[in-house]
């Protein structure tokens, strides 16, 4: 059921398609793709890249629609981001989780900021290093706090990410490696609230992505996202996926993936498809 925010994002998607490019010098695909929490990344994992195609002295913007469809859940994401001088990224995502067996809906808003602190994705020896925050506000926390014993309806993840594109690295192809360390008290990324009966109880988790560019337009790869497992009532597993990404031009990118989300709340072995479309200015 599209609500006002989803319609706003759709409007921005259309506007970006029609609008003038106000800076688009970055190399194709170095914008990254959309991700479930709104930050530029690979799908499940935020990368160190700054979203959009704005390079030094330029602005970039992007809007994304994403969908994860596993056995008992559907997660829809609508998000927008802006990148400034390839240095700073601000993002907003609205997530809508449909819990099909309960016919329930959980919504969450994610406000993100990310800044490149050192290095560059392609140039020089150092990988691009970025520091990011994701402030998450669960709009329907009753299941999490009243039933599952979560401590809070909102929380803030902090992360550092390192990304590097190694040219002509494997089978004569360019290889992207990304590692992200996240300090978080979110249960199932916050969709099941934050912390547990013991309080906030934040933990450090590791996330990783690998991608191989078959040519400038197509990449294949995989992602892994470690998750905390701190709710007493239910289990939480790491998430992983294998993906195919298509960058036909600097306006559009599409990511399709097969995702394994493990146990979510009462339901085990959640697997299914992920699809994300991003429009860039």
């Amino acid at each position: 059921m599209p609500d006002r925010k989803t319609r706003l994002v759709t409007l921005m998607l259309t506007g970006l398609l029609a609008g003038p490019a106000f800076g688009a010098s970055k190399i194709l695909a170095t914008s990254g793709a959309g991700s479930i929490e709104g930050a530029a990344g690979g799908g499940l994992v935020p990368w160190a890249v700054i979203g959009g195609y704005g390079s030094d002295g330029e602005w970039g913007a992007a809007a994304s629609l994403g969908r994860v469809d596993v056995d008992d859940f559907r997660l829809g994401t609508a998000s927008v981001l802006a990148g400034v001088h390839d240095r700073l990224e601000v993002s907003f995502a609205q997530q809508t989780l449909q819990v099909e067996p309960l016919d329930a809906v959980i919504e969450q808003h994610v406000y993100g900021v990310k800044t490149r602190v050192a290095g560059h994705l392609i140039y020089g020896r150092l990988p691009q290093l970025s520091f990011g925050l994701q402030h998450k506000v669960n709009q329907n926390p009753a299941i999490a706090t009243d039933v599952l014993g979560a401590n809070s309806a909102s929380g803030t993840d902090t992360y550092i990410a390192a990304s590097k594109l190694y040219l002509h690295a494997l089978f004569e192809r360019d290889l992207l490696l990304n590692g992200t360390l996240r300090y978080t008290d979110a249960n199932q990324t916050g969709l099941l609230g934050f912390g547990n009966s013991g309080g906030e109880d934040p933990q450090l988790v590791g996330e990783a992505s690998v991608g191989l560019f078959l040519n400038p337009n197509w990449a294949i790869g995989a992602e892994y996202r470690q998750k905390p497992d701190r709710l007493d009532a239910v289990d939480e597993d790491a998430w992983r996926d294998v993906f195919v990404a298509w960058f036909p031009n600097k306006r559009v990118s599409v990511v399709g993936a097969y995702a394994d989300l493990g146990s979510i709340a009462l339901w085990d072995d959640q697997q299914g498809w992920y699809l994300s479309v991003q429009i860039t200015n």
């Binding site: 010098s25 194709l28 030094d56």
Partner: peptide, 17 residues
């Protein structure tokens, strides 16, 4: 700056393709 370098790399990829 990187804007110019990025632009040249993009043009070179197009030229090679």
């Amino acid at each position: 700056d990187n804007r110019h370098f990025d632009a040249l790399v993009t043009d070179l990829i197009t030229a090679m393709t």
